[in-house]
Computed example of a mutant assay.
Amino acid sequence: MNATRHEEFREYVAARGPVLLRMAMQLTGERAEAEDLLQAALAKTYLAWDRINDRSAVDGYVRRAMVNTQISWWRRRKLEVYPTDELPDRPVDDHSQRSELHDALGRALERLPARQRLAVMLRYYEDMSENEIAEVLGVSVGTVKSTVSRAMAKLRDDAGLGDQFPGIPSSDY
């Protein structure tokens, strides 16, 4: 009986999913949030599947679950703003400088040879160990160390990135 319940629910979701997603989009305004909302509502519906005797009323049940869930999320996200006559002492963080640095690093990475770029990406973006990188690339650990070391030296030298990016290690290897 449980397999039948599961299959019946699965068929319902396959048939009505796109329609329900459109409603979720109307509630949230963003596709990713709509998908999350629909998923939450469908999870609630699945748990109550045996209690829904009239299968023609399932759409209404899911819609009500979406509305209730969205209202719950709105309440949780409610911003608490307390107006004040005084401005804070510390300056507001300027994200533009970080964005410029990120762009400069991206351009510098693009100028690296493919093997060096891959080694750096695996090491610092994927946080893989030297042994893991060696296995992925099919080279020795020593080759990984020297490749990453050369790549990091090029990145530091390229447009003075060593000064701009204190997070780039100067002697990791």
Rank of each mutant, 00 (worst) to 15 (best):
V13Y: 11
A119Y: 05
V13A: 12
Q116C: 05
M128K: 14
T69E: 06
L112Y: 07
S146Y: 07
E132M: 10
R64V: 03
V19W: 02
M66K: 08
A34F: 00
A15W: 00
L122A: 02
L137F: 02
G29K: 10
R22E: 11
Y124Q: 06
L118H: 03
M66S: 00
E8M: 12
L37C: 00
Q26C: 09
L101K: 01
L21N: 00
V92M: 06
V141N: 07
E126S: 15
D50P: 02
R22T: 13
V139L: 11
V136E: 09
Y125R: 11
R156E: 08
M25K: 01
P169T: 15
M128A: 10
E86P: 03
H102I: 13
R77V: 06
G142P: 00
A15C: 12
D89C: 06
R10L: 13
Q39I: 13
D127A: 05
P113W: 04
E8W: 15
V62I: 09
S146M: 14
T69S: 09
W74G: 08
V136R: 11
A134E: 03
L137H: 06
L21M: 12
A3S: 13
Q26M: 11
A24C: 08
S96V: 07
I133M: 02
D59L: 01
N53I: 14
V58M: 06
R117W: 13
R123I: 03
H102M: 15
V58L: 05
E80P: 05
A3W: 12
K145S: 06
K78G: 08
E135P: 03
D157P: 05
V92G: 09
R150E: 06
E130W: 08
K145E: 14
A32C: 08
R64D: 08
Q164D: 13
P91T: 12
Q39S: 04
S72P: 10
V19N: 13
E100T: 06
D158S: 08
D85F: 10
M128T: 10
S96I: 07
R63M: 10
E126V: 11
P169L: 11
A151S: 03
D103A: 11
Q164K: 13
N53S: 14
D50G: 02
A32I: 08
N53K: 15
G142Y: 03
R55H: 05
R75A: 07
D103Y: 09
T69R: 03
G138V: 00
S170A: 01
W74P: 10
R115S: 12
D59H: 01
Q164H: 13
P113I: 11
Q26S: 14
G160T: 01
G106R: 14
A24E: 00
